[in-house]
Amino acid sequence: MSTADDGQPVLELDCRTMMCPMPVIELARHLADVEVGELIGVVAHDSAAAVDVPAWCRMKGQDYVGADVTDDGAPRYVVRRLS
């Protein structure tokens, strides 16, 4: 695990096998596991996550950092905890 400083999430949620809305539910459950200012990643194949993670950030006042791809090719959505 790396720290928030190098742009890598301090916590990565493995939601590869989950369907919507479970990835966003996991994100909500585990947001408090990282400190304010730190990054949390959601790894999900479910295509709804690409829209729903940014929408969740907007609704809950968190910062959507962006999407990248994990080593195994799964989409990862990265969020910075603001509150």
Binding site: C20, P21, V24, S47, A48, A50, V51, D52, A55
Partner: peptide
């Protein structure tokens, strides 16, 4: 189809629920 509404997706609004 297991894909969310392309309308909601294009608007960038929550697709579940």
């Amino acid at each position: 189809t297991l894909t969310p509404s392309h309308v909601l997706e294009a608007m960038g609004v929550l697709t579940h629920g």
